[in-house]
């Protein structure tokens, strides 16, 4: 499939999931396992995305300026800075790391 097809199929899936929420019976809400599983899924996916976007290139684990960016971002989040500042600081940290000669 072309990239456009994946983009559109993914958009359609996301909409179908949103719509499905309105179609499901209310009783589903009374089962705490549903809530727990949905939030665990979200945490698991995001944590994994942090790792793949920071430590991997293809199928290899690599340490480079992105780890510096992650550390700076974590400190910024801990200091309760807004999301956009966190992202900008991450970019600046990676750029400075490379300027300083890190991979």
């Amino acid at each position: 499939m072309t990239m456009w097809a994946w983009v559109l199929v993914s958009c359609a899936t996301a909409y179908a999931i949103k719509l499905a929420g309105y179609a499901l019976p209310k009783a589903v809400l009374d089962r705490p396992v549903i809530h727990r599983t949905a939030s665990a899924l979200t945490v698991g996916l995001l944590a994994s995305l942090v790792v793949t976007n920071t430590l991997t290139t293809g199928q290899h684990l690599v340490l480079d300026s992105r780890l510096l960016a992650l550390a700076v971002a974590a400190v910024a989040l801990w200091r309760k800075l807004p999301f956009i500042i966190v992202v900008i600081l991450g970019a600046v940290a990676a750029a400075l790391g490379r300027l300083a000669g890190l991979p």
């Binding site: 939030s39 979200t42 992105r66 960016a69 992202v87 991450g90 940290a93």
Partner: peptide, 29 residues
């Protein structure tokens, strides 16, 4: 590429309230 790392931890951070989500994040990582 550093901005991407920062964005993902920024999306994850507000969900790490309490012991369970942190443990799950560590397991996933």
């Amino acid at each position: 590429d550093g901005a991407a790392s920062a964005a993902f931890i920024g999306l994850l951070w507000p969900r790490l309230k309490g012991r369970d989500p942190i443990a799950l994040a560590v397991i996933a990582a």
